[in-house]
Design a protein around this nucleic acid. Structure first.
Length: 546
DNA sequence: GGAAAGTAGT
């Protein structure tokens, strides 16, 4: 429809030559249509208009076509490539746009090829070329290309351009060459929020969080992205309280948060149960009219579920019209996290009715739910699903989860089969298998497996010892229990936690060693819980010891 | 026509 209207307005605009005046081109209605284009199909209609009016012979119009295809989410990089290949002597803008398109794609090395062709065609790069090219180099796993491009920046004397300079800092910082990044940063006169932030991200992502914070404090004028970078820097290494307190500082400094801030802050809230901050973020999102932003709604569902308000999480979740895999996963994961396994499986079924394909994270939530509910049928279905789709992509956490599920559902033989067939075992998979055997009362085999595990070079952790001690507890192996408990402390340097004490005290009290059990209670660094008193009282009853 | 930041699990 729009195209018909546009073309009737265009009749008096008919080009007399293939290169009409620049200003006339800029206001050409066919070109302004591109900004409203939402599919490749309507793009092709617009392209037909370009040809009809002779615009396709102008570099300006062609650059607009390439720009849409290479950069718009509704475009297509391969279509951009075919247009590009048909252009005779493309100018700088068009080449730079192609390089930019490649830098955003999953084939950043094509940007380098495009750049080399540009040089071979006798064109010199300009100050727009390098930021895109360097972004592509940043995405590559090796630093070699980036260093060579840095050489070209010198050769073409563009090292003083702010954008080129910042792109170089970012490239070195992202590759972990923090000293090189810092050197560029220090020797230059322009230091703005962008170059600071590039460096901060580099330091924070390599674990130098204090150095990152030092730089953050030194930024002359911070913008919202600098705050976001520092907040997410804290969040990514699990320093959620610091992330949230920095967010409060940001609010005090009257910096307006954006979508990215909200995503990081909500994630931090969900990890520490900070529902009040979460509520504040939610009202901000509603004020801004961002409450249909899928990413934000997903983050809110996750936050409310992890903070324990499952009703709020569910009502937000139900309001999502087009749920993506993350929407499903956070809702299923939220129920599992709160031990609402039945509800978790209900959502999983809804997902299947909605033709949603689970991924490994979905399954990682669903399998424990099966284990707790004894839903062996669904568990077996998932087992088959994993064998079918994850055969070439072995994920040991999934197999470990299945071992745990089969063991809990009583099918220890299948658990053993899975364990034996695992090519690479993790500490968690050994723990799951040992615990499965212990659960089935096969303490001897559990201890045997423990020795095998040590022979294969795995160092047991606190979970391994909970498992072993509970095996002794179930079978009444008092001496062995004592030995393991002492070995844990003396040989493996693991200080006992509440669960370890719980197993030991239960084991001793049941066997009638009340004094030893009580002296263990007194030696604990933490307060005994009700389970510990419960096991002592229970043992008193068995032994009729009033 | 441009550079910096962000979601689900282990």
């Amino acid at each position: 429809m729009a195209i018909v209207v546009a073309s009737s307005n265009l009749l008096h605009f008919l080009p007399s030559s293939s290169d009409p005046p620049y200003d006339l081109l800029r206001i050409h209605p066919s070109i302004s249509l591109l900004s409203k284009c939402r599919s490749l199909q309507s793009f092709k209609q617009i392209q037909a208009q370009f040809i009809k009016f002779g615009l396709h012979n102008t570099q300006f119009a062609l650059s607009k076509l390439v720009e849409f295809c290479a950069l718009s989410p509704y475009g297509s990089l391969s279509y951009a490539m075919s247009i590009f290949d048909s252009i005779h002597n493309p100018n700088h803008v068009i080449r730079n746009t192609m390089i930019r398109g490649y830098s955003l794609s999953s084939f950043p090395s094509l940007a380098l090829r495009c750049y080399v062709n540009m040089l071979l065609d006798g064109l010199e790069p300009d100050s727009y070329t390098f930021p895109f090219l360097l972004k592509s180099c940043t995405k590559l796993s090796t630093a070699d290309a980036g260093k060579q491009v840095h050489g070209h920046v010198f050769k073409f004397e563009l090292e003083d351009d702010v954008y080129v300079h910042t792109s170089l800092i970012n490239m070195y910082a992202q590759h972990g060459s923090l000293d090189d990044a810092r050197m560029l940063f220090d020797k230059s006169d322009f230091r703005d929020a962008v170059s600071f932030t590039a460096l901060i991200t580099g330091y924070a992502s390599r674990g130098y969080i204090d150095k990152a914070r030092e730089l953050f404090n030194a930024i002359p004028v911070r913008d919202v992205v600098s705050w976001n970078a520092m907040i997410s820097g804290y969040a990514q290494i699990g320093m959620y309280d610091e992330a949230l307190s920095l967010f409060n500082e940001m609010r005090k400094a009257k910096v307006t948060p954006d979508v990215s801030t909200c995503v990081s802050v909500l994630s931090a809230c969900s990890h520490v149960g900070a529902i009040e901050t979460g509520n504040w973020v939610r009202s901000w999102i509603e004020e801004q009219g961002q409450d249909s932003n899928l990413q934000l709604v997903n983050a809110m569902v996750d936050m409310y579920a992890k903070c324990g308000d499952l009703n709020m999480a569910r009502s937000l979740f139900d309001g999502i019209r087009e749920k993506d895999i993350i929407s499903w996963n956070v809702m299923i994961g939220g129920y599992t996290y709160m031990s609402k396994y039945k509800e978790a499986l209900e959502i999983f079924h809804l997902m299947q009715l909605d033709k949603g394909e689970p991924n490994h994270i979905t399954l990682l939530h669903v399998i424990p739910a099966c284990a707790h509910l004894g839903a062996l049928d669904l568990g077996k279905w998932i087992h088959t699903y994993i064998k079918k789709y994850y055969h070439d992509f072995p994920n040991e956490t999934l197999w470990t989860s299945l071992i745990n599920m089969y063991a809990k559902c009583g099918n220890i033989e299948v658990a053993k089969q899975i364990f034996c067939s695992m090519k690479t075992k993790s500490l968690a998979s050994w723990n799951a298998m040992i615990s499965g055997l212990a659960m089935h009362g096969d303490a001897n085999r559990a201890i045997e497996l423990f020795s095998e595990m040590a022979e294969e070079g795995f160092r047991p952790d606190d979970i391994t010892f909970v498992t072993l001690l509970s095996a002794c507890c179930h079978t009444g192996f008092v001496d062995l229990g004592r030995e393991i408990f002492n070995s844990m402390i003396n040989d493996y340097n693991i200080s006992p936690q509440l669960q370890h004490y719980g197993c030991m005290i239960d084991l001793l009290a049941r066997a009638g060693f009340f004094e030893e059990a009580m002296s263990l209670v007194e030696s604990m660094e933490m307060e005994p819980d009700e389970a510990i008193w419960g096991s002592i009282l229970g043992a008193c009853r068995i032994h009729k010891n009033l």
